[in-house]
Design a protein around this nucleic acid. Structure first.
Lengths: 101, 101
DNA sequence: GACGTAATTTGCTATTTAGCTAAATAGGAA
DNA sequence: TTCCTATTTAGCTAAATAGCAAATTACGTC
């Protein structure tokens, strides 16, 4: 729980998720949307990966990052469950995937 | 959006919300559940208030803090909406309250 | 008024985080 | 091999955050 909220507590990281919601992208493609230098983007991606909301795949010399939507929403619904019946129902209804993907 | 994720990116602050989910409490009562000194708790509460997820009411020399459940869940569903149809439906179904309360 | 308790504000230190540039690693092309 | 491009890692600095103790404010009681 801590990792995901730390990950989301950053404007640039939330923006990265928006981009990845459209389609998987390489680090360079993502970086093109920011003023920031590439190493900074790379670091942000590592944080998102650590939080389990994106996945990385080597594609030759490129690294492709993919949004793991279910992991993102699942964790947040998990947090919301104690506060909200709708969230409890959603958590209940979802199969518990374990980082296969 | 930034304020709420910054607010939630802290273990102690998330714990405070759990306590307040049970019932409204004074700063002292909340602080009794932590090792932390009261000024630190007071600061955490200010952050949560700034994020719009708790409300404070003066009660004589005490200050009573109350969880604003709808504000908490509403903001998170707002974030989730682009990633999840269920969240979109929930956001859609809810009346947009504006910080009355 | 003076005193005691509740809470916040102030001033400080230590830690973490975000960003940078430069250097290292890894793969593809010549 | 050598060169070029993509990405990550290292090493750094500036800024933000979390905690504390001490001081201040606010209220209630004597």
């Amino acid at each position: 729980m801590d990792k995901i909220f730390k990950a989301l507590a950053s404007e640039p990281r939330r923006r990265i998720l928006e981009y990845l919601a459209v389609e998987p992208m390489t680090v360079g493609e993502i970086a093109d949307n920011f003023e920031m230098a590439m190493p900074s983007i790379s670091k942000h991606l590592a944080v998102l990966k650590e939080a389990g909301v994106v996945r990385e795949q080597k594609r030759g010399q490129y690294v492709l990052y993919t949004l793991m939507t279910e992991a993102l929403t699942g964790q947040l619904y998990g947090f919301l469950a104690p506060y909200c019946g709708e969230a409890r129902r959603i958590v209940e209804a979802r199969p518990k995937r374990r980082g296969r993907d």
